[in-house]
Amino acid sequence: MKVLSVLQICVISISGGLGLKAVCHKDNLDCWTQNIRQQGILQFERCQSTDILRRLIRISMLECVKECMITSHCTGINYRHLWLMCDILGDAKDLTSEMNCVYSAIKTWDKSMAGECEYHTCNNGDKCFFDGENPKCEPAFCVDSPYAPNAVSAERFGTYRNIGAAVKFKCEHDYEMKRQPYSECQPSGQWENWFLCVEKEKCSDEWTFVSDKCYFIVYENVEWQQAVVCCYIRLNVKEYGGHLAKVESELEDSWLISQLTDDAWIGLNDIENEGLWHWISDNSRPNYTNWLLAEPNGFETENCVNYCKDYCEKKFYGWNDGKCNRLLGYICQHHFI
């Protein structure tokens, strides 16, 4: 078990009459030892990363404690002395390790530090203030977290909910940001998103996205070698890289068959070595095939594979080895990244 030093667990208290804004700036421990009366327990290098009601900067830890006491539903604080940053925390959650951060449960501190707001009954979302005559309540934070579909917080220390705060988000994988990446907590207590996370365009125009691949079926009659070239340049003039389709599963095969209206080339061939079928895209051997009955049967004269139905006198599409100079449509493919 780790033994904590005096500076890692401090038991302190503050007299009710102490002017918090005038003392202990930048958390001077010598200052803390004055007027000791009641315990306030600190956990060093520990922080709560969720349910942050408010985030305040350029204040001392003692000011942070008081802000927690006057904020409805506050149960504790995080304090980062390097940034003079204070987090006012809601429901107590599991703590996580974080360098240069201090956590403290507010119940360990002297309640009289809240001054005239010691016994406030402000509603959730409000904080107490003293107007010179009576304690009153005013909106301080949004009760709920922002609703940001397909997005996650981009805040280094977690999302906070101050009135007027604009917290930063980033889109999840496969989504892209439109407009400014912020959500603002309005004075009404509601959030206003300044952005949308929209699904990325997975395939160019005319291409169809299925199972992380883009497909384009072309019914222009060309030889197999010409189809190879056409797929390479058809992706677009700036981004070459398409290839004749590599069909790797029954699911993929069934979907392609459902789209076909005529025979079409795919990338399988045995041009270099008779009987050793490989895909033109990466020279790999097929792990899945869907040969028509009695196929392949062309031996050295038929080295290129196509989907075939009517020409092969079949009622359904399947794979056929054909002469590479036959004129057919073709199926192009590229992976979406």
Rank of each mutant, 00 (worst) to 15 (best):
F209V: 05
D205Q: 15
G158T: 10
A154L: 04
E116H: 14
N134A: 08
I233F: 11
Y219P: 11
P139D: 07
Y175H: 09
Q226G: 00
C171H: 03
E220V: 12
P139F: 00
Q226P: 00
Y182R: 13
E199H: 11
F169N: 11
V228D: 12
P181N: 07
A140C: 02
Q225C: 02
F129I: 08
K168A: 11
R179L: 05
E116N: 14
C137M: 05
V167P: 03
K213W: 04
A151Q: 07
D126S: 12
L235R: 15
P149G: 04
S211F: 06
I106W: 00
G158W: 02
R156V: 13
Y182G: 05
T108M: 01
P149N: 03
R234T: 13
W224P: 00
W194N: 15
R161P: 04
R156A: 14
Y175D: 04
A154P: 08
E220G: 02
G164P: 06
C185H: 00
N193V: 03
Y160D: 07
R179G: 01
D144F: 02
S211H: 14
C214M: 06
R156N: 10
E192N: 13
F157A: 10
C171A: 02
E172T: 11
N221R: 14
N162R: 03
T121Q: 14
V222M: 03
Q180V: 07
E192M: 09
Y182E: 11
E220A: 09
K127Y: 12
C128P: 12
V228K: 15
A105K: 13
D205I: 11
D174K: 14
E199I: 08
N123W: 01
Y160N: 09
I217H: 02
S112L: 06
N134Y: 10
N221L: 08
W109C: 03
V167C: 05
I233K: 12
C117V: 07
C230L: 12
F216H: 15
R179S: 14
Y219S: 15
